[in-house]
């Protein structure tokens, strides 16, 4: 029998993993506990990261460079986000809560400005540029290229809002939907692949923790959980009756 913090950790890890997996059986106390722990722990985790990785170095590191020592120089302009941030906190005082709106306005406006440019460039102009064809390639590749162009055209026609999808427009947009559907099917297939891979990763962990080295964590927890779940579902069906 080995006993140290790592072993406790492994037991907790296996317990948490199996608790979440128990959801597959249905909503049950194990899942509820792990779900609630997850929400609490992750909120604390994210808050700690936000403070120590963002606000502390990036804001206070620039306003009080000597005290924080995050490698930034003093930049007084960072008073503005500090003020906007404090505005945000005024949410707690109802009479001043309208100030938070200014902080939100800053963010929304900024996002609009930045994304406008980025998307015009990366999604529109880059894709237009890519439609050029290289005729020195083989016949099959040229055919594929033309097919891609036709697909892009017809799928874009599908997105027209101010035209009724009837007649020629309707027919073309129908073809467009077919291309979109093939794309969605492909995404779906890839997603299946990815999810299975992650499950494999999880199961490998569980398998490796079922050895003597970890005091047989997986089998012991698994069996006791199945037993408790069985009793629980038996009891709850009794009470339902």
């Amino acid at each position: 029998m080995i006993f140290n913090f790592e072993i406790i950790g492994v037991w907790v890890l296996v317990l948490m993993t199996l608790c979440i997996l128990s959801y597959l059986y249905g909503d049950n106390p194990f899942y509820k506990i792990s779900e609630h722990i997850f929400v609490g722990v992750s909120a604390g985790y994210v808050f700690a990261l936000v403070w120590w990785d963002q606000i502390w170095p990036n804001l206070f590191g620039r306003l009080f460079p000597e005290y924080v020592g995050a490698g930034f120089e003093f930049s007084p302009i960072y008073i503005i986000p500090l003020i906007l941030g404090i505005f945000m906190l005024f949410r707690l005082i109802p009479s001043l809560s309208w100030l938070a709106r200014i902080a939100i306005a800053y963010i929304v406006g900024m996002a609009a400005g930045l994304k406008f440019y980025v998307y015009i460039n990366s999604n529109i102009l880059m894709q237009i540029q890519n439609s050029a064809i290289d005729l020195s390639k083989s016949g099959g590749e040229i055919f594929n290229h033309i097919l891609i162009l036709l697909g892009v055209f017809s799928a874009l026609v599908y997105f027209f809002f101010s035209k009724e999808h009837k007649g020629t427009v309707g027919a073309i947009s129908k073809i467009g939907i077919y291309f979109l559907m093939i794309k969605f099917g492909a995404s779906f297939g890839f997603a299946v692949m990815g999810r299975i891979s992650l499950l494999i990763g999880r199961f490998e962990d569980l398998i490796s923790y079922s050895s003597y080295q970890y005091n047989y964590a997986t089998p012991i927890i698994l069996i006791s959980m199945i037993v408790i779940l069985g009793i629980w579902s038996f009891q709850s069906s009794e009470t339902k009756k």
């Binding site: 894709q127 890519n130 891609i148 794309k183 492909a186 995404s187 890839f190 997603a191 692949m193 990815g194 891979s197």
Partner: peptide, 22 residues
């Protein structure tokens, strides 16, 4: 795997030299 279909236009245009998918 899930990212592949979003990345494939870049592969087709040569902006990515191939891709290891999942």
């Amino acid at each position: 795997s899930i990212m592949v279909t979003d990345a494939i236009p870049y592969v087709e245009s040569g902006q990515l030299r191939g891709i290891l998918a999942g």
